[in-house]
Computed example of a mutant assay.
Amino acid sequence: MRKPRSPARPHLPREAAELTWLATGLSRSGCKLEDAYWEPRLAAAVDELLREDNEADLTAALDLLFEADGPAHDELADMVEARAESTRLDHDGKSWDVLLVACPVLAWSRFSIASPSLSADVMAALKAQLSGHILAKNARVALADFLFSPDQLPRSFCDTFRLTCELGVRALTGRDFKLKPKDLPETNRFLSDTRYLLAAVAVPKGEALFRWNERDGDRDKALAQWSIQATPTVEGLLPGCAFEMLLPDAYHAACQQADQASRTYSLRAAIAFLQTTVGLDTAAMKAVIGPFHDQRLEEYRIGLGPRDSDDIYYGVVWPLLGTEDDNSELVPEIEAILREAGFQDITIHDHRFPMEFCDDCGTPLYPNKEGELVHAEMPEQPSHEAPGMLH
Rank of each mutant, 00 (worst) to 15 (best):
N213C: 08
A107K: 04
G303M: 04
D325A: 12
F273G: 03
A254H: 05
P354I: 06
L390K: 11
A258L: 06
R162F: 14
E81H: 10
L49W: 06
A60S: 14
T187V: 03
G240Y: 12
S192P: 05
K180Y: 05
L247C: 10
A72P: 00
H73C: 13
R110K: 13
P248E: 00
P4M: 10
A128F: 09
Q225I: 00
E385I: 06
H384Y: 11
A202F: 04
H293V: 06
P154Q: 14
L33K: 15
E235S: 13
M355I: 10
F190P: 00
R307G: 08
S95H: 11
D159G: 01
L274M: 12
T20G: 00
R140F: 01
A224S: 14
L89G: 01
C241F: 07
L191K: 03
L153E: 03
R296W: 15
G217W: 15
A36W: 15
N54L: 08
M1V: 07
Q344G: 15
E340N: 13
W21V: 15
L280W: 15
V169Q: 13
E335P: 00
P379D: 04
D183I: 04
L246S: 08
E324Q: 15
E335A: 05
F353R: 03
P71I: 13
P40C: 04
V203A: 01
Q256K: 13
L135G: 00
A250M: 13
K369N: 09
L100A: 02
I346E: 11
D121F: 12
C103M: 14
L191G: 02
V101G: 01
K205W: 14
I134D: 07
V331P: 07
I302S: 02
E244C: 02
N327E: 14
M378G: 01
E85Y: 02
I334P: 12
D90A: 10
D63C: 04
T160S: 02
L198P: 11
R140K: 15
E81S: 06
A258P: 04
F357P: 00
A144C: 08
L209K: 10
R155G: 09
D249R: 10
A16C: 06
L126Q: 01
F148R: 05
Q295Y: 14
